[in-house]
Computed example of a mutant assay.
Amino acid sequence: MTYCIGMRLNQGLVFLSDSRTNAGVDQVGTFRKMSVFENPGERMLVLMTAGNLSISQAIRQIVAEHIDSNGLSIWNVASMYDAARIVGEAVRTVHQREAKALADCGIDFNVSIIVGGQIGAERCRLFQVYSAGNFIESHDETTYFQIGEAKYGKPIIDRVITPASTLDEAAKCALISMDSTLKSNISVGLPLDLLVYEAGSLAVTRFVTIDEKNRYFRMIRDTWGEQLKSVFENMDNPVWDVAPGTDGRSLASCSTAGKPVRMTMPAQLGNTAQPTTPMQSLAQQVHNGRQH
């Protein structure tokens, strides 16, 4: 499995991916999920993949090399939309070639892709491509995409990131999101690839591969955990059964306590006396034997 995040902001783009493909007791695989298509001064695109590794690698190779009948490729299309379309067509090509053989072996055709970047004077754009080759684009209402193990890292992004967030804020948030995922899921693992792109640069502006020795990421891991514990400990515990409106910490007041849904005992078990179990009988016999 894997976890990848792509963010589109007013200032540019942020991409973060892990590098784990499988995790078992005696087998851990590491393959980098981020690929860069760059012609400095003219275009800068990033592709991140999650899902079946053989499918992902085949798609990436086709995207990098394929030229269609009109002479168009990822290296010369005029817009990011056309670039996303080329990625989608590569997905369909691999599906047509591989899906049946995979299905015969009981393997699903499983791949998810994030592709984003900037071409010429066009604004930065970000897309998510699905297994069918169709895709959607990020807008201000949805400033980011996640693929892979997304659920653990989603809450912090939803609470923090807006289009107005700075690139450094977004990079920090992405790393916290990744740390939350690493903490909760063994199928995501180091090292990480982090790429921060400043709009208008048309070249990679900042990139780092992060391993367990990276001092900033170690600080993120330690500080985030400590701060979460501190915030939790500083929040009041709930107060029960108080008069309405007398305490802002009230979880249940005298008038709103409610009642649980109670199930009805079958009529034939209406006797409330607890039946004696074989274990209770044996214990009682031992006890009586000791008394005698």
Score class of each variant (00 low, 15 high):
F232V: 02
G270F: 13
I136V: 03
G116Q: 04
E198C: 10
T205L: 08
Y3S: 11
F217I: 03
G120R: 02
L13K: 03
D222I: 03
D193A: 10
A164R: 14
I156C: 01
M235R: 15
D18M: 09
P40T: 05
I136P: 07
R262G: 10
V286T: 10
S187C: 13
D104R: 12
V28A: 12
Q291K: 12
Q11V: 01
E198P: 01
D222G: 05
T142W: 12
M80P: 01
N234I: 15
M178N: 00
G225H: 06
R92Y: 06
E233K: 03
L202Y: 00
I107Q: 07
T21Q: 09
K183E: 13
F37M: 02
G106E: 00
T276Y: 07
T162Q: 14
G289V: 10
N39L: 15
V46E: 04
L228G: 05
A90E: 00
K213A: 15
Y81Q: 06
K259G: 12
S184I: 11
A121T: 13
L53D: 06
N234D: 15
C254T: 12
W224N: 05
A101G: 07
T246C: 11
A84R: 02
R20A: 04
T21A: 10
D247G: 07
K33V: 08
V63L: 11
R215C: 00
M265P: 08
A273Q: 06
M80L: 13
T264I: 13
Q128N: 10
T276K: 11
N214L: 04
